[in-house]
Design a protein around this nucleic acid. Structure first.
Length: 391
RNA sequence: GGAGGGGUGCCGGAGUGGUUAAUCGGAGCAGACUGUAAAUCUGCCGCCCAAAGGGCUACGUAGGUUCGAAUCCUACCCCCUCCA
């Protein structure tokens, strides 16, 4: 991540910059820029989708700029309208603090802590009065807000839009004013919010922020954007083995995209990868292994990446029994009961199905008898890769 | 205040008296195949009984009609849209 040049930072893995020319001018000016990044404490887990923007923050830090991380303890209560999620539970102060803690642990795996300033929304919204809110809301019209993609889509689809949701972009925009942001970072789904921030800043006489948007990363299912609620995510806090495995399970069609957004493998090399995949001279598996290593190396280190790879090769590719196997409960029960007892199956019916379908192995031999009595030190494998050893 | 629409399994969404544990899609799980935990194909996919098979619970909640209800009736709760 050395000799970063501005073109690379502004082009690689970037969806849109508003306004690119102003952005370049700012970078040339030599000013230390304040880069805004918000975080919703109801969702403290960071996944690779977030990592795309965080990597950009990191690059800007290396160019000498300042990150301002905003803990959105107020807007968390509203919920980002783009999520269309159910009404959120109100978080207690302790929960918010705990989540912030968790979040930052993950955040600083990618972003440099020393060049980050942390601010809480409550610093300014805590003092907000009704007058402030009326002033703020009077600056925009309903039509402007309904123009926003997901609002209009929901409106047309006769889906509900809470009034507080209209407030969300305003509050986020005000954050930009409060911290005097020069640039705001996020996914393309944040465009509207960013633009409101930009507009609000100029209304109050601040130079308007630049909007730096990265593409939304597609999740491991290969179709929808990566998100925790869809279950198609790879969390940055997961173990190297988990990350490695999940990266390998990403559809082959996403390989190049992931390299582009999540690694610094040079563009020229990616060009070769692409050619190789197109004319099938490159094996997608090999590329994904590289991809997995690159990602893990950023979140942990090269060594962890190599180890995760070893683990994958042994357990998945060569189907070897892993070195360390969790110990199960006492032997002497029927296999069916034993699976349930050790949570390898949720119910007896499920255990039966698993056995009937040939998904259970005892000491490497498929066991089809649900009444097999589990012996001491049996190594039981349920499904592809869940192992347990009886005691 | 008025009018209308709706609440079904993890999610989406069919079904409007029996043949419905409930079409279908997605997710998930398993198997086969594969240089990948990719793709593809096949199967499973409420719970319980060793099983052929059987039993129990389930379609917002509570009652009712009926030999039989997710489907009909009554009350209640909740959600959405439109008009004002």
């Amino acid at each position: 991540m050395t000799n970063l040049d501005i073109d690379y930072v502004l082009k690689r893995g970037v969806a849109e910059i508003i306004v690119e020319e102003e952005m370049r001018a700012l970078l040339r000016s030599g000013k230390k820029l304040r880069l805004k990044e918000g975080f919703d404490p109801s969702f403290p887990d960071i996944h690779l989708g977030h990592m795309v923007a965080l990597r950009k923050l990191r690059q800007f830090q290396e160019l000498g700029h300042q990150i301002v991380l905003i803990v959105a303890d107020w807007t968390a209560q509203i919920g980002d309208p783009s999520g269309m999620s159910v009404t959120r539970p109100m978080l207690t102060l302790e929960q918010v603090k705990a989540n912030a803690q968790t979040y930052m642990q993950q955040f600083f795996k990618i972003v440099d802590k020393k060049k980050t300033e942390i601010r809480w929304q409550s610093e300014w919204f805590g003092k907000f009065t009704l007058t402030d809110i009326i002033q703020l809301t009077s600056k925009f019209t309903v039509a402007q807000f309904l123009a926003r993609d997901d609002f209009s889509a929901r409106y047309k689809a006769e889906k509900p839009i809470a009034i507080t949701e209209l407030l969300y972009p305003l509050l986020v925009a005000y954050d930009s004013v409060a911290i005097k942001a020069d640039v705001e970072f996020g996914g393309t789904d944040q465009k509207f919010n960013f633009l409101v921030g930009r507009e609000l800043q100029s209304m109050v006489g601040q130079p308007p922020q630049q909007c730096f948007m990265v593409p939304l990363l597609v999740g491991t299912d290969g179709s929808q954007k990566m998100s925790k609620s869809l279950g198609n995510y790879i969390g940055v806090a997961e173990t190297p083995e988990q990350i490695y495995g999940k990266v390998m399970s990403v559809p082959d069609s996403l390989i190049i995209n992931y390299f582009e957004l999540l690694t610094d493998v040079p563009d020229e090399e990616l060009e070769q990868f692409k050619k190789g995949l197109d004319n099938t001279t490159a094996n997608p598996m090999t590329l994904k292994k590289r991809l997995a290593r690159e990602i893990i190396a950023q979140l942990y280190d090269r060594k962890a990446a190599a180890e995760a790879e070893g683990h994958f090769e042994r357990t998945v590719q060569r189907k070897e029994v892993p070195e360390k196997i969790a110990l199960g409960t006492k032997s002497g029960k029927s296999l069916q009961d034993y699976l349930v007892e050790n949570q390898l199956a949720k119910s007896k019916s499920e255990a039966r199905r698993l056995i009937d379908q040939g998904g259970v192995y005892i000491n490497d031999k498929r066991e089809k008898d649900v009444n097999y009595i589990v012996q001491k030190d049996d190594i039981i494998r349920a499904g592809k890769r869940r192992y347990i050893k009886s005691t």
